[in-house]
Design a protein around this nucleic acid. Structure first.
Length: 428
RNA sequence: AGAGAGAUGGCAGAGUGGUCGAUUGCGUCGGUCUUGAAAACCGAAGACUGUUACAGGUCCGGGGGUUCGAAUCCCUCUCUCUCUGCCA
């Protein structure tokens, strides 16, 4: 959520940012917000005056009662009726204005960082790095959905029987390599200074609001109606919400957390071409890193996270590229996002396996995540912190890429770093 | 799931209608003392809103009500704890 004070003081910057994100009706909404904000402050200040008078009266009546002057007290009471009516009126008006203001404010996406390229869709994303060489496969190489059947390591039909499409059953070496990757990713994160957490995978509405999934994205999350809990679409939600309504002491920053969780996505309306096999699932596993930073450090932290994710891909020996997402393709809550894509050699496509973002104060404002920061220029000031997160990494597409890229006519080679975790070096 | 109890500042824990934003203890920070530290003593310290700055206003789980006045009384919701039952 953007800060009203920022919008008020930086209207043109706000509008330019919203346009870059292709937000419709930016001018109208911003004007409405500014108008409502002014109304809110006027109403508030009038209400404050009325309340101040009421408080004075109440004090006087109290003193009169104490003095035993009942007649004077009753007379004073009679004079409060008007103030009371007025304060109710103003209070109601204020509540309505605040409701309207909030409803409008949550519709605004975060503003993009200045380095975000113009553009409307995925084609406009900027490739900022490429690494590794595209493998040449033997003739009759197969896409991963054929390989998993051939070696019987993942069973989609079984998943359909138990749950439905998009819920695969991993079997034998398929299951073991999943577990291997989770442990590998967690161990790497620990080495990089992240603290491991195991959060709940069902979250309440407040948490969904805090990170920006709610309102609006409820259609993408599974919902347990009886208890009003959502299954998490990513560990970002529960981990970041650890810090909801928290004032962090400055000396605890930065916060670096890592967590493994399954993720659940309804993917309503996004089934079509390119979703075969492991490319898009309703349930998948992911290791997520979350970082909380002082504002001045957040972009350096983002670069560090990007480098960290890339280091994982390098260790897995997968060819990848890094994209800086354009304004139109970025997430609602993000100020700057890098996507990491690995090459899937049989599909001959890039697959997104990580998305690393800086949300600046957008989530922190919703979360009320703050710190009293001492800048040496006067007393320490309460400030919203910056939140960042990234996948490190999402498993299914990594597996798809490993299977396809490392296939030989008679088996699939496991990347060396995973062998100690798997206990085998080949699927055949 | 049933019965009961409870929700107050970083934590513990008072406060049952009138200077209560709130006693006190612990913890935190600053100072005195000390070579340094501890102890002791003295002092400071909540959040939000708002103002150029004051002032003012709001916040004792959430919402509503009674009252001139609510942390305190009433209604309601949520959550937590204890016991019983069930169960990894």
């Amino acid at each position: 959520m953007l800060q009203l004070s920022f919008i008020r003081e930086n209207k043109e910057t706000t509008l330019a940012g919203l346009r870059k994100k292709h937000f419709a009706n930016a001018e109208t909404v911003v004007d409405q917000l500014i108008t409502l904000d002014q109304q809110r402050r006027d109403t508030q200040s009038e209400l404050d005056n009325v309340l101040a008078q009421s408080n004075i009266r109440a004090g006087q009546i109290g003193a009169l009662m104490k003095a035993g002057d009942k007649t004077a007290a009753d007379a004073a009471k009679a004079e409060t009726a008007e103030l009371k009516a007025r304060s109710k009126e103003l209070g109601d008006a204020l509540r309505q204005i605040e409701t309207d203001l909030q409803a409008l404010l949550v519709t605004l996406p975060n503003l993009p960082h200045s380095s975000v390229p113009e553009g409307r869709a995925a084609d406009d994303n900027e490739v900022i790095a490429e690494h590794g060489t595209i493998p040449t496969l033997h003739t009759n190489a197969q896409p991963h959905w054929e390989l998993i059947e051939k070696y019987d390591i993942i069973d989609f039909k079984l998943g359909v029987k138990i749950s439905g499409a998009g819920f695969p059953v991993y079997k034998g070496k398929g299951a073991r390599i999943q577990r291997a990757m989770i442990n590998f990713f967690l161990d790497e994160a620990l080495k990089a200074g992240f603290m491991e957490v195991q959060p709940p995978i069902l979250i309440n509405e407040e948490s969904g609001f805090g990170t920006g999934q709610l309102p609006d994205k409820e259609g993408q999350m599974y919902f347990a109606t009886e208890d009003k809990l959502y299954l998490i679409p990513t560990a970002e939600v529960p981990i970041t919400n650890i810090y909801r309504d928290v004032i962090l002491p400055e000396n605890q920053l930065p916060i670096k957390n890592v967590g493994y969780t399954p993720c659940f996505r309804r993917e309503a309306g996004s089934w079509g071409a390119h979703v075969r096999g492991l490319n898009r699932l309703h349930q998948f596993d992911k290791v997520e890193i979350v970082r909380i930073e002082k504002p001045e450090n957040s972009y350096a932290a983002l670069e560090e996270m990007s480098q960290y994710v890339q280091s994982l891909l390098q260790k897995l020996e997968l060819p990848y590229r890094v994209l800086r997402l354009c304004g139109g393709d970025m997430g609602f809550t993000s100020a700057l996002t890098y996507d990491m894509e690995v090459w899937s050699a049989a599909q001959e496509r890039w697959l997104e396996v990580s998305s690393v973002s800086n949300f600046e104060t957008y989530q922190a404002n919703r979360l009320k995540l703050r710190s009293k920061l001492d800048r040496g220029d006067g007393p320490a000031k309460m400030q919203l912190l910056h939140t960042l997160n990234g996948s490190a990494l999402a498993l299914p597409r990594i597996l798809a890429s490993i299977l396809e890229n490392n296939q030989t006519p008679d088996g699939i080679n496991i990347p060396a770093v995973l062998v100690p975790y798997c206990g085998f070096d080949r699927i055949d």
